[in-house]
Design a binder for these strands. Sequence first.
DNA 1: CTGAAAGCGCTTACAG
DNA 2: CTGAAAGCGCTTACAG
Lengths: 332, 332
Amino acid sequence: MPDSKKVTLSDVAKVAGVSLSTASKALNGSARISEATRARIEEVARRLDFQPNALAQSFARGRSQTIGILTQNAIGTWSAPILVGAASYLGRHEHATLFYDAAFDAEVLEASIRRLRARRIDGLLVIGDGPHYNLRSVTHSFSVPVTYVFTSTDGPDDATFVPDGVMAGRLAAQHLLEIGRRRVAHLTAADDIAATERLQGLTEGLAAAGLAPVAVHAQRDWSEETGAATATALLRSGVEFDAIFCGNDHVARGAEKVLLAAGLRVPDDVALVGVDNWEGTIVGQGTRHLTTIDPLLSRLGTAAAKDVLSADHVGGRQPQPCVLVIGETTVG
Amino acid sequence: MPDSKKVTLSDVAKVAGVSLSTASKALNGSARISEATRARIEEVARRLDFQPNALAQSFARGRSQTIGILTQNAIGTWSAPILVGAASYLGRHEHATLFYDAAFDAEVLEASIRRLRARRIDGLLVIGDGPHYNLRSVTHSFSVPVTYVFTSTDGPDDATFVPDGVMAGRLAAQHLLEIGRRRVAHLTAADDIAATERLQGLTEGLAAAGLAPVAVHAQRDWSEETGAATATALLRSGVEFDAIFCGNDHVARGAEKVLLAAGLRVPDDVALVGVDNWEGTIVGQGTRHLTTIDPLLSRLGTAAAKDVLSADHVGGRQPQPCVLVIGETTVG
DNA sequence: CTGAAAGCGCTTACAG
DNA sequence: CTGAAAGCGCTTACAG
């Protein structure tokens, strides 16, 4: 049965013996229509396998039932789970998603914005590449709601959905305290919004037990190299520690290598917690090695999609919960 | 400037002092229009910042300029690069993408198909979860071209774009021969289309040098456990080997652990080649460890997108090239 | 080369 | 509760 043999609403109306407008109202729920009429029209529609032409509906209504999704870097590993979380929520709520990838390119971005506007989207989701730096706000280019995910923007009122970095730090602290650690060091990236939040959470979490981080080492980025370098610095400093909260999983991996090479045991001598749950994204993994904080990116996408669709689309930063994922580096 | 202040084509026509139809023709390239008129209309359109209402255009033309993308498992790591490759090609060619994820669920799939049809897509890309098993063909549900990517289907005439498994095997063989290996073993999954192809390529590649695989061990799946188990079996068998071509990267990882535990050196004693380029998907990695065959998934998505858009949309299986990526496990 | 007119398939005030 | 009619903003034969 290739395509809806072009059964049109007037076909339905004709067969059901009613006017076009009555048929339309009956099928769209609202409006006062006698139950009998409605039932008859619905029966006919079903029998003829009537599929309303969504193009015509959108055009007539002036709403496209489509949400634009604009990624900065779709190929990056972050975007996929967010995209999927958002798209599946939107799909369940009768909205299609119109997907463009700007690939960090200003011209492509400009072209994408033009096309999204031409397509009369009902809202836009902008997926960033991490809450680390400020994206240029594009809200002013649209008259429909714009919601940002996994990024910060230079528009202070923009609705931005990001993982709660403070919560991440607090969860790490609580877990380390629970397994009896008291001397927690922190290795992370410098000059980074997310890093700052995570440290704040760690500090708050430890403070609840009357403690503070025994050391904080920060370098430029979030790489394995940074992890190795800061771990080396930590060892050399002579500070005593029985746990490290690492700014992310890469840092944790670098730190672990250095610790093991120095003859320390993980977790017996030093417990290790990361952030991101990299392992979770890799299929076919057996045991879970690294204890980490999962930013629940798919859920983040869902939350943002819900926001962009909602009548009272919110503004401002909207931190979303993370969860602790326990692995061998804290509970051998 | 929120949204295109509803400047309409008739506004442009009025200002330019021409009829609606002339304005339309001038802006759409075709039709014989005097250069002077066309220039004037274009100038007015630009000046008024006219953005054609894509909804109205689609409706009038009966074509949506939209390609549906249906994933079986969007959250799986395979889909993302394919999706991005396809979407960015389509974006560059003035087509939007309408994204639905079936999440391996038959009911969701059914609903997605209904919606895609209602939206009058101009073509459909179905992204699978690997060429390992046959997807149920949905081609008959559409009157527009349907192209499959990274999957097999039960429709023999379906256009399916898959990585060339034979080429993958051949590339591995050639590389191993080039670095002087003569005794190549193969560890892989059983009862799998892709596995069979890769073995065939390996066999062909070795045959060119008058050789054959010294051993082939296959187990149920593609996991790290399978790699470890088959590598153990290989070691116990007493067969001499100086290289292993592994069915995929997970298998290679499992095999490497077993080899190292047995006191063998990689690559000095045994060179190791995988398939998939898992490492390539993980950002922030430093050195490349595993030599592998990259299936170029993003390119695969692009090729499929090109096909679905092309007038002479092809049928049948369309194997696409892979490339060798050299790492420490063959060239220490 | 240019324009008047019909039509794409719906929705939605407005009357009745 | 039901229907006649206008309209959404374009495209596209068809005349001229």
